[in-house]
Nucleic acid binder design. Structure first.
Length: 177
DNA sequence: CCCTGATTCGC
DNA sequence: GCGAATCAGG
């Protein structure tokens, strides 16, 4: 007998809870757990009362824990917000840390050339970092998946968003490459 | 176009 | 309870 759908077994629910609290997105969790859709994950999250995740830690007297058959599972704190991997603000990356094209080094290894696109193929979710000379036919945009909310992929975003102090002096427009 | 979570509602 | 479809927003 091919056991029916896995459904939400204890293990799966635990995994779900772990990943969710860890800051994973519903789609990521769905892919990780397997056999369930993102909607299923979200639905379960709500039924478990885990919705809302970490975002507001103010006027919320925490959940009214039934307190009864509590296990010595030393763990029931209101979660100190484990900071998801989602970074909105540009990290303070200095140019010195950006791998520069050396005389004998493939500086483009971090750039998926195969993903380069023309302006016609460019979509909003694609990295708009210009590559090459706009006057030549081989001009392309990076085209990699851009960071949600930003026009660039992680790599180019690290170059584009540098500390103001770093560029305040050398504020030139030309030199895009 | 991509993504996110929230909600609804038939099953 | 479940989750696809839908909604609302980025």
């Amino acid at each position: 007998m091919v056991d029916a759908g896995p459904s939400w077994t204890k293990e799966r629910v635990e995994l779900l809870r772990r990943l969710w609290i860890d800051g994973r997105s519903a789609s990521q969790i769905a892919a990780e757990i397997g056999g369930v859709s993102r909607n299923a994950v979200i639905g379960k999250i709500h039924r478990l009362g885990l919705a809302g995740r970490v975002l507001k830690a103010e006027s919320e007297p925490a959940a009214p824990a039934p307190a009864s058959t509590r296990r010595p599972r030393a763990e029931e704190a209101p979660a100190p917000a484990p900071r998801p991997a989602t970074v909105v603000a540009p990290a303070p990356v200095s140019l010195a840390l950006v791998p520069q094209p050396g005389p004998s080094g493939p500086a483009d290894v971090a750039l998926p050339v195969s993903e380069r696109v023309t302006i016609m193929e460019l979509r909003e979710f694609m990295c708009r970092w210009p590559m090459g000379d706009p006057a030549t036919p081989d001009f392309r945009f990076c085209g990699a998946r851009s960071i949600t909310g930003l026009p660039y992929c992680p790599h180019h975003a690290s170059i584009a968003y540098q500390p103001a102090a770093e560029r305040k002096r050398d504020r030139r427009v030309a030199g895009f490459r």
